[in-house]
């Protein structure tokens, strides 16, 4: 971290930015999905994630205490200030890559939110209560689709296996623990990501086996993480270029 900021603020940005960037990516599918029913389902997922974004970033703004709204935080920060993991900013790729990314994130998100329901911070507990229900449904949906595609045709199997090979290392970043996580865990606010890893592994590996997929050996070799902003892919800048365009071109307007 370049400057020392409130760990709770940092932790809330991580939650909000993951939801924002993934919601943005999923929303790119609207009007382009493989089948109408899936188009509608993906939009629901994106809507849930954007709803969660508002709640996390609004609270982040309050914790920060500088009068920034959720919109200010979403639309007026540059890439180095974003705290999302690299997994969620990767391009959609084919539908297989999108749904695999979704599944790997969904299970983490649900476990994380479930644990946060008993957070010592009541506001976080309240948000988690609502968001955990949404995440549980996301898992149900993305898991079923991953299994269906893995155990479908030869082509669908090959494509979803390719997606897993690309994404598996990135998913490991979700479990990196740093001092922000440690402090939040010690205070009983947000669980240590490491504490979720066994449950995540058991669940995800089970589903991937049912999908007849092979889990690759690869691990996350990067030394910096999106969680503290020391690392991102080049894709994030392009996401922000689109997302923030109007706010940047016409600053300070009501929309």
């Amino acid at each position: 971290m370049t400057q020392k900021s409130d760990p709770k603020f940092e932790a809330l940005l991580r939650l909000g930015d993951n939801a924002l960037i993934l919601g943005h990516r999923v929303s790119e599918w609207c009007g382009h999905a493989p089948v109408l029913e899936e188009d509608i389902a993906l939009a629901n997922t994106a809507l849930d994630l954007l709803g969660q974004t508002s709640l996390w970033l609004e609270y982040a703004g309050e914790v920060e205490g500088k009068g920034r709204s959720a919109d200010d935080i979403a639309f007026l920060r540059d890439a180095w200030d974003f705290r999302n993991v690299l997994l969620v900013e990767l391009p959609n790729g084919d539908f297989g890559q999108t749904i695999m990314r979704q599944y790997l994130f969904d299970v983490f998100n649900r476990l994380n939110l479930e644990a946060m329901k008993t957070s010592t911070d009541t506001r976080i507990a309240e948000i988690a209560e609502k968001a955990a229900k949404e995440a549980a449904y996301h898992v149900e949906r993305s898991e079923g689709t991953v299994i269906g595609l893995g155990d479908g045709t030869e082509e669908s199997h090959r494509r979803i296996q390719d997606a897993l090979n690309i994404l598996w290392p990135y998913a490991q970043e979700l479990f990196i623990t740093d001092e922000v996580d440690e402090e939040m865990a010690k205070a009983g606010v947000i669980p240590d990501p490491k504490s979720l890893q066994d449950a995540w592994n058991a669940e995800v590996r089970g589903a991937l086996a049912e999908a007849t997929l092979e889990v690759p050996e690869a691990h996350f070799g990067h030394r910096g993480s999106g969680k503290d902003g020391r690392m991102h892919t080049e894709h994030l800048g392009h996401i922000l270029t689109q997302m923030q365009w109007l706010q940047r071109a016409y600053p300070g307007q009501e929309w």
């Binding site: 899936e38 539908f95 669908s156």
Partner: peptide, 8 residues
């Protein structure tokens, strides 16, 4: 989307 529909 054809491979997705066929796969599922």
């Amino acid at each position: 989307g054809a491979w997705v529909r066929e796969g599922l």
